[in-house]
Design a protein around this nucleic acid. Structure first.
Length: 299
DNA sequence: GACGGGGCTGGGTAGATGAA
DNA sequence: TTCATCTACCCAGCCCCGTC
């Protein structure tokens, strides 16, 4: 038995798995597609450039990083202006009854409240903005299907589950927080930059350049969303890494300060003490004692 | 006693912050 | 976006402690 729409209630009653029917990269230029509909769900992701997607009653502008989820049987068409090429990744999928041990749509909805809400949105289309979370999954999915075909579906199903959860969280965030969503995206991007580069000499202007914002504006929205300044957040990330390195390794302090992007061991020590009320050495000793105590208890 | 690892303090400066 | 303020960061120098 097959299910085609994302919002069929049967998806939450039976054990269904998504199945990718078609996927392709395509660069469009000066293109006007006639109105049409599929009997499967379609994701259209804009990799470069911009385009218009028209559904009955709406004309939606998509630019780089935007994607639209069109439910099955929703009439739509793609329009791309002459001289402004648009590179897209399209994926179409439907649902079939589960074979094997992969988590079903029902299983995912039971574990992830956002996904459960997503399945009840009943929206013919959802236009979402990606903060570079969805596209890497889509790329991995396409690569996996290209390399393995239908031979090894484990990774494909894991990636599809991840994709659904990411899209659902994005959809829930977007709908719950519409006017704030754009600012939220920039903050998310900045957070990702901080978590990927905390070991480097990060400056406010680097983060602002990464998210294409003025440093002053980024600072304001970051504090509004997180309650912390960018530097306070960065320091807290660094201190957490330092705690882990102190308690789990015997790496010398001078190296730890370098690992977390603080170039001065003196400054690292003072910062660490300010955050934990212990010097790094005291913290390490306490952590070691706790470990020893735990191992004695086992014996 | 030599040496290495680490803590503390004071001073200088680049640049982050926040008000306008 | 600008600009004055202030703080985060770095460095030098000194000291303490543990180990060899």
């Amino acid at each position: 038995m097959e299910r085609n729409s994302l919002y069929e209630s049967g998806l939450l009653r039976g054990e269904f798995l998504p199945e990718v029917v078609a996927y392709y990269f395509k660069q469009w230029d000066n293109y006007s597609m006639p109105f049409h509909a599929h009997n499967q769900v379609e994701i259209m992701y804009v990799i470069e450039g911009h385009c218009n997607v028209e559904t009955e009653g709406a004309s939606l502008q998509l630019k780089k990083g935007d994607f639209i989820i069109l439910d099955a049987e929703v009439p739509h068409r793609l329009l791309v202006e002459k001289g402004s090429p648009c590179r897209m990744l399209n994926i179409e999928f439907r649902f079939h009854e589960r074979k094997g041990v992969f988590p079903s749509i029902k299983n995912i909805a039971e574990e992830d409240p956002a996904f459960a809400r997503f399945l009840k949105m009943n929206s013919p289309y959802l236009l979402l903005k990606d903060a570079n979370e969805v596209y890497p999954i889509l790329k991995s999915l396409v690569l996996e299907m290209d390399e393995r075909g239908k031979e090894n579906l484990l990774m494909v199903h894991l990636l599809l589950s991840q994709l659904f959860i990411r899209m659902a969280r994005l959809a829930v965030e977007t709908i719950a927080n519409e006017p704030e969503h754009q600012a939220n995206m920039y903050v998310k991007q900045a957070l990702m930059y901080l978590h990927e580069n905390y070991d480097c000499d990060i400056q406010m202007k680097d983060i602002a350049a990464d998210v294409n914002l003025h440093p002053g504006y980024l600072h304001r929205i970051f504090k509004k969303h997180t309650g912390l300044t960018v530097m306070e957040y960065l320091t807290s990330v660094r201190m957490e890494k330092a705690k882990m390195l102190l308690s789990e390794t015997d790496i010398p302090l001078i190296e730890i300060s370098d690992y977390i992007g603080i170039n001065s061991r003196q400054y690292f020590s003072s910062l660490f003490k300010k955050h934990t009320h212990q010097t790094p050495v005291e913290y390490r000793k306490t952590a070691m004692h706790k470990k020893e105590f735990a191992s004695w208890e086992k014996v």
